[in-house]
Amino acid sequence: MPNLFNKGIGTNMVTDFIKFISKGTDANIIILDPEVSNYRAVRCYEKCGFMKVKKINDGNNWLMEHRIR
């Protein structure tokens, strides 16, 4: 739904997810693996504090991590 792009909805959702995980579990890291070609998702995750670690799956995905403080 392109009419919902660029409104911060994804960033807010991911931020809320990070808060939920950090308060509700004893996890100290969140890992995800978006497709390299999914620029919008990768940028959203970066805005929320995820860092690219390395490419995986023959270079098709980013291994990204967010350390919970």
Rank of each mutant, 00 (worst) to 15 (best):
K19C: 05
C48Y: 08
M1A: 10
L4R: 15
N57T: 11
G24K: 12
I31E: 12
P2M: 04
P34C: 13
L4H: 12
F20I: 05
T15F: 02
K55Q: 15
S22T: 03
K23W: 08
I9N: 00
D58P: 10
W62Y: 15
I21T: 04
H66W: 02
T25V: 02
N6L: 10
M64C: 13
K52F: 04
L32S: 09
I68S: 11
H66I: 08
P34T: 11
L32Y: 01
I18M: 05
N57R: 14
K54N: 11
F20A: 04
P34L: 13
P2Q: 09
P2I: 00
D58Y: 02
D26I: 08
N12Y: 06
K23Y: 07
K19F: 01
G49N: 01
A27M: 08
E65Q: 11
N57A: 14
P34S: 09
I31P: 00
T25P: 07
I56R: 00
P2R: 10
F50K: 14
L4K: 13
G10N: 04
E46M: 15
K19I: 04
R40L: 09
F50G: 02
K19L: 03
L32I: 07
N6E: 14
N60S: 09
K23S: 14
D58W: 00
T15E: 14
D33V: 02
L32F: 02
R40F: 07
N6K: 13
P2E: 05
S37Y: 09
I68K: 02
M64Y: 11
I30Y: 06
T25W: 12
K7E: 14
N60K: 02
F5M: 05
S22R: 13
G10Q: 00
G59A: 00
M64I: 10
L32D: 03
A41H: 06
C48G: 06
K23E: 15
C48R: 11
I18C: 09
E46Y: 05
R69E: 15
I18F: 06
M13G: 10
E35M: 13
C48T: 08
K55L: 13
M1C: 04
M1T: 11
S37I: 12
E35S: 01
A27Q: 05
F50S: 03
L32C: 03
D16H: 07
E46G: 03
N3R: 13
R43C: 08
Y39F: 01
I56V: 15
F5H: 09
R69Q: 05
S37C: 12
V36D: 06
R40Q: 10
D26V: 03
A41C: 07
D26N: 11
D16C: 01
G59M: 12
T11M: 07
N12E: 10
A41N: 04
